[in-house]
């Protein structure tokens, strides 16, 4: 079935926006039974990371593939191995629904073993997502490290597809080696959409001609103007970047951090993802620095 985008569009989505705590509600909140989605495409992002494109098997589930926000996540099942949270890597403005899976444990290995035509289980979308509404009309700085970049790609493409609503947009991204960089074919399209893109790696090889070092060195070069920011990456990188941004005049409440935790339900019941009084699955995974600055 062709998805009818005329009925959604970015404006409709932004209708949810504005309010920082809004979330796109999960499609079937009441059930732990996932719906089935077919793997329609697989891209290899790095030696241990695949980008899987998914299409819901049943028509009545189609809306899941469009009704979500950047920053939200899915609970993805491989029947027989279990279920784990995976952030959505695609933007709701584009087909198809994509998840970026990095090999970590049994379940992610199972997801990565899927071939085109195989079926995975999906529940969600869960979590609050980035506050795209409040980012409108602002400068936006997006900083990612390692596999944390997957969820930011959703936001970048979302902004690229609605570019005029945002002021200066800067993306900085660091990975361990050039081979670990995700979405390398898309950087050009972002730059074409007038998004400043800075890439850096820790360890280089003979072919690499780009930057070497920490993401913060990119910030020093690009000097982004204060505004909203979205961060996702290893805790150390988050702490360093957040400190840097505060020094640049970003406000604590405008630094939005996507957190990762062990999860079993996605709906605030199983308690695995608790961080102090917060449930990362329902209160997050996006938290502003003023809320979690002392917890990360």
């Amino acid at each position: 079935m062709k998805i009818d985008r005329s009925k959604m569009g970015t404006d409709t989505l932004d209708g949810f926006g504005g309010d920082r705590i809004v979330r796109a509600a999960p499609a079937k909140p009441e059930s732990y039974i996932p719906f089935q989605a077919e793997v329609v495409d697989i891209d290899v992002e790095s030696s241990n990371t695949y980008l899987l494109s998914l299409r819901p098997m049943n028509e009545e589930d189609e809306h899941v593939a469009i009704n979500y926000f950047p920053g939200q996540f899915l609970m993805v099942s491989v029947f027989g191995l279990g279920e784990c949270p995976i952030s959505i890597a695609s933007s709701p403005t584009r087909d198809p629904l994509q998840i970026c899976v990095r090999e970590a444990g049994k379940i992610t290995q199972g997801i990565m073993a899927a071939r085109i035509g195989d079926v995975l289980g999906i529940r969600g979308p869960f979590g609050n997502g980035f506050p795209v509404g409040s980012m409108r009309g602002e400068n936006v700085l997006i900083a990612g490290g390692g596999s944390g970049f997957a969820t930011l790609r959703s936001l970048i493409n979302y902004i690229a597809d609605d570019r005029e609503k945002f002021k200066e947009v800067t993306v900085v991204y660091g990975a361990r080696t050039p081979q670990d960089l995700y979405f390398t074919t898309e950087y050009g399209s972002w730059q074409a959409a007038e998004i400043e893109v800075g890439i850096t790696v820790d360890m280089i090889d003979a072919t690499w001609k780009g930057n070497v070092g920490l993401v913060t060195s990119l910030l020093a070069d690009l000097d982004p103007a204060p505004g909203a920011s979205a961060l996702c990456g290893p805790p150390m990188m988050i702490r360093v970047v957040a400190k840097d941004l505060l020094g640049r005049g970003f406000l604590e409440e405008d630094i939005h951090i996507s957190l990762e935790r062990h999860m079993k339900c996605g709906v605030g019941k199983c308690e695995h993802c608790t961080m102090g009084r917060y449930h990362v699955c329902t209160d997050g995974p996006i938290f502003s620095y003023d809320v979690v600055g002392d917890l990360i």
Binding site: Y32, S77, F79, G80, L81, G82, E83, R261, H262, K264, C265, K269, C270, E271, H272, C273, T274
Partner: peptide, 27 residues
């Protein structure tokens, strides 16, 4: 607190069992 696990391939059950935040594997 609970954990969720699958038992059985290709057919099987998704089980929910009590978990404990006292255990180090919990988080």
């Amino acid at each position: 607190c609970f954990s969720v696990l699958d038992q059985g391939v290709p057919d099987g059950e998704r089980l929910r069992c009590r978990d404990s935040c006292i255990l180090s594997g919990f988080s």
